[in-house]
């Protein structure tokens, strides 16, 4: 019986491919990782404040992606690179970014108000929250399915991507620099927002101890709404970079697996930890790409990410940086 099991081809390892593409996989992985990290922030913030996995966050993200692609095609972008001046392109991309962030923030807020608030008011058991969350996720997903069908949106090219320089024999593209740079910038901004501003202090207070925070005059409901809006806006921003990187990836269930990977990134870095989300995202992006090259199919990225999730939970469930939102110091 064992012979019959082994005789068939289950796994094949492509070591030479992996080694020759190592740096390529690394840089591309970092680019994907930056996108995961931005989405992971939404999970981490909500988890920090409400102790809840917002399963609908992946659909918050894909709603933003739809908004980005609609905005861009409305502005005249198509499958071939636009012939506008760089300034005009940047302007249009900023509009798309804004549209994505706004849409995602609204969807996130709606999810909070419709699905979670009534349960919080009733003090429902945790299981109920999770079931509503997954229910909301599927409702949004299949609303897009009924509206846009089971096909991906026509792809949009934002600009002519070009090689910038070569590191370790691997070409670095403009898009990779933009995505990683912008994501890191946004993460730093959010980190500072949480550490230094009044809103950030409120979020940290509610994450630490909701009851005491309320007694100290923090409006808990408003903080929760703010958290969902921030997380949503970041997911919408991530959506722009996602469309930039995977133009043919906007489909009704396109957010689903990305959501699981983003959650894995959050857990890997330490859920509830903002810097952890960045670290986890970048690491997961690289690990997934290494797995894909080693096993010879891009779809292995998802499987490898899932195995990473299970391993992290087994070995170090608190993640690498392992602290929570409440413990962040100002």
């Amino acid at each position: 019986m064992l012979h019959a099991l082994v005789a068939e081809s289950w796994l094949t390892f492509h070591w030479s491919d992996f080694l020759s593409n190592f740096w390529n996989a690394t840089f591309d992985g970092l680019t994907f990782g930056a996108i995961y990290a931005l989405v992971a922030l939404g999970y981490t913030l909500v988890y920090g404040v409400l102790n809840l996995i917002n399963f609908a966050h992946s659909e918050v993200f894909i709603a933003g992606a739809y908004a980005v692609i609609f905005t861009l095609s409305g502005l005249g972008f198509g499958p071939s690179p636009p012939t506008l001046s760089p300034i005009a392109i940047i302007g249009d991309l900023l509009v798309a970014l804004l549209a994505g962030a706004l849409t995602s923030a609204i969807v996130a807020l709606l999810v909070e108000r419709i699905a979670y608030k009534p349960l919080r008011a009733r003090n429902a058991p945790r299981l109920v929250f999770l079931i509503t969350a997954i229910g909301m996720s599927f409702v949004i997903q299949y609303a897009f399915f009924l509206w846009r069908g089971a096909v991906a949106e026509p792809s949009v090219t934002m600009y002519q991507d070009k090689a910038i320089f070569i590191v370790f024999g691997s070409t670095i593209y403009l898009s990779q620099l933009i995505i990683v740079g912008a994501a890191v910038l946004m993460m730093v901004g959010i980190d500072q927002l949480i550490r230094r501003t009044r809103i950030g202090r409120g979020i940290r207070a509610v994450a630490q101890d909701p009851d005491t925070a309320t007694l100290m005059g923090v409006n808990r409901e408003r903080i929760i709404m703010t958290t969902f809006v921030i997380g949503g806006a970041l997911a919408g921003a991530a959506a722009l970079f996602y469309v930039m990187k995977v133009p043919q990836g906007v489909i009704y269930n396109g957010g689903f697996i990305l959501g699981i990977k983003a959650f894995t990134a959050a857990v890997l870095g330490g859920i509830g930890n903002i810097r952890g989300a960045l670290l986890g995202g970048l690491l997961l992006g690289m690990i997934g790409n290494y797995g894909a090259y080693l096993l010879g199919d891009a779809q292995w990225i998802d499987v490898v990410s899932f195995i990473v999730l299970v391993l992290v939970l087994m070995v170090r469930p608190d993640g690498i940086l392992g602290s929570n939102l409440g413990k962040v110091r100002a």
Partner: peptide, 23 residues
Amino acid sequence: GDYLAIVTLGFGEIIRLLATIIP
């Protein structure tokens, strides 16, 4: 319990993927 929920959710999708990519 949350972790179980997301791990099983991932598992449901991964099995389908494995059926696709394992020859």
